[in-house]
Design a binder for these strands. Structure first.
Lengths: 110, 110
DNA sequence: CAGTTTTGTTCATTTTATTGGTCATAACGG
DNA sequence: CCGTTATGACCAATAAAATGAACAAAACTG
């Protein structure tokens, strides 16, 4: 009997969009699925799952693929942890300075 | 013969810090490892791997655990994708408005 | 258009993660 | 302090992901 796991809406959305971001970044760089899969050391089948936003793939592989196409999820400094720690509250999204300052602004109405 | 995969420094750092963030958020909420594991529907062993920053755990499970303790990685709106798309460049970190505006500022010198 | 490349999907096999149990140790509380 | 609880680590058994092959369809290209 297969495992039956439930995922929250926010998790499904995050996975779906992360997959799309990776695909967009890949095509923008003119890479085929096979080429990116080769660079990441995974099969095209697995990359397909990742771009589809499946919950199954290993997080290390997904992060590696994201990094390869320039989608940075984290770029934290270890020291950041303690500082962030003192600021934790209910639904705080934790960000490192590099992200807060490096992001390109886009239209505010999305 | 076991699979031998290599992970980049940034991936390892990201996983390590994400695990620490989850652990900090969990303890700040007074949850034991067993309690959080139960809520997430996983074993304490797996949660331990996640908090240790192992690359193996499924990304869906990690995202789910993160969400349960209030560590939001993504909160994108689907429409954001197209807008971001036009702004992709070398090492752009993509952020949704909710993150850009909702983050609590901390000391800039970390 | 015809030919080529890329992608999406499915499937059997191999590899790996997940689980639940156990034990030692650390941290906690009366 | 002693008893309790939480954590970290390890293990065999089980469940699931990763792989590579194969095929159809879609997307390019000349």
């Amino acid at each position: 009997m297969p495992r039956q796991r439930s995922y929250s809406r926010i998790t499904r959305q995050a996975l779906s969009l992360l997959g799309k971001l990776i695909r967009v970044a890949r095509t923008e760089r003119g890479l085929t699925a096979q080429e990116l899969a080769d660079r990441a050391g995974i099969s095209r089948t697995t990359l397909s799952s990742i771009e589809k936003g499946a919950p199954g793939p290993e997080i290390g592989i997904v992060f590696e693929v994201a990094a390869l196409v320039g989608v940075r999820l984290f770029d934290y400094d270890e020291r950041a942890l303690q500082l962030h720690n003192t600021h934790l509250d209910e639904k705080l999204t934790l960000l490192p300075r590099s992200v807060r300052h490096g992001v390109k602004e886009v239209d505010d109405d999305f």
